[in-house]
Design a protein around this nucleic acid. Sequence first.
DNA 1: ACGGCTTCCACT
DNA 2: TAGTGGAAG
Length: 589
Amino acid sequence: EQRQQPNLRGQPTAVVQYNSWKGGGLIAVSYEARKFGVKRSMRGDEAKQVCPQIQLVQVPVARGKADLSIYRDAGSEVVSILARKGRCERASIDEVYLDLTDAAQTMLAENPPESLELNNEEVLKSHVLGLSLDAGDVKEKVREWLHSSDADHRDKLLACGAHIVAELRLQVLKETEFSCSAGIAHNKMLAKLASGMNKPAQQTVVPFSSVMGLLQPLPIKKMKQLGGKLGTSLQIDLGANTVGDLLQFSEAKLQDHYGLNTGTWLWNIARGINGDEVEGRLLPKSHGSGKTFPGPRALKTIASVEHWIHELSEELSERLISDLDQNKRIAHTLTVNASAYKVVVSNDSDSHKKFPSKSCPLRYGTVKIQEDALNLFLAGLREYLGPYIKTRADQFNGWGITGLSVSASKIIAIPSGTRSIMKYFHGQDKFFSSMNQLNDKIIPEDVVLSPSGDHLGTESSLILKQNELRSEISGEGTKLKHAMDGVKSQEQKKKTLKEKGTSSILRFFQGQASCSSPRQGRINTSQEIKASQSLGSQTVGISSPELIKADPLELLLTERKTLKGVPNLRQEERTTNAWSYKIDEIDPS
DNA sequence: ACGGCTTCCACT
DNA sequence: TAGTGGAAG
């Protein structure tokens, strides 16, 4: 927000979401404001009390809920810069791990620090843990450490790392206007620890010889993963208050208390050992959209729950489309979570049960996600209410929903190339069963795109403009039923798939039965269509029809046209002169 | 009326 | 595997 509004730079600032209740909740606090004791977890009103001049910026609201997308995107800007220099793991919205081993080794071999004449001023500002604290010229000591030619090989690598990181941080500043802090160490645990030691906008190096000195006196709760119950247990049950205190416990003893994995992990981190790899992952593993309804705002009717599930699903759907668009990834699982309270009924001490989370295969399309999410919720609600179903209408049955969230997970990149696509589908049991489900579906007449979008409302799942492919599928494409009998052998199916790959795969994108649990009956198709009409369905276009001829599948999946940055047009209208299909009809299962 | 909204992970 | 709970930003 300080980047967005330069007048906020250097000013005590905080970001709040919502503000009608006690001024909203703070989710981020500038360093200037922290000096006043402003904390995350404070309310806007509270922050004003301790820092009257604080500038409060509100999180954007969309669909009645906080929308964090601008902050996600800001995080991505930084990731894309850091990823240029090494294996990069997006650890959170504003943190990444970077494995600079290769870059450091290369630098040590070709451009060792001792030979560097002119120094990046930034690297000289590094904090190097363990450099004799007694005053004197600290900066000179740092320079010495960074360039000493008789150092431990491992420390030389760290020195290279410090140079690379200093450069990267400057690069990030230049390209994004964000400052950042960094820790440079031999593993993730130590790097994370060090990164928090000198903020803001500074970097800290952990020489190999300083590891024990760093960890010994460190309060256990400062270590990542030990800030919660496990850390408390170490203190209370084992009497270990510092990481050093852990050294006295054998690995076996720690395993007895906390299990094999956790025990070993504890034994290792007490010694500064942490083998966790930096995962090469620039993108999130799941997307979720949720909202709480505290206190009197608790939802008490199915209708209100439905409303919010629709809002949340809409946001989720939009983000899934962006992910597909930008990253060619498809999510496979939809999960709904809720929190609820139930008033004591027959006092079976049952009123504190947790609302169960439910999931099902994810079908693309806003309306489908909305329907499936609602069904998952209802399944959870029945289980939650137990025998006390009270099939009667919505109203006030002694329950209230205090939180709702829908999320998408098992996000998998679409493989590129026909062969790998076939292999990919083949590997999925559900593929063939879903092919069978298509038997009773109708592939409609081809529909040509028109700017007015008047083709919408037909059940067409494919919108094809070029004749070549159209003729290819028209034989079975028009009014085709019973394309495949469910009794064919797997081999036969495979063959059919190969021979008629185009239409088969295209048909693969047909919508199909809704999630089997929890609603028993089939969803009324006309309702589905109507809803789809009213909300508009997304269509994505493909350019380069020639390539389709050569390899329609690959093109279908990999060469879709970017739709971003074309404002004031409905998406359907943006896909002119292009091959396209409706995102709606993608069923990852 | 809980800090809200996420994301990731270990465990069963 | 689906579902729970913990941890963290």
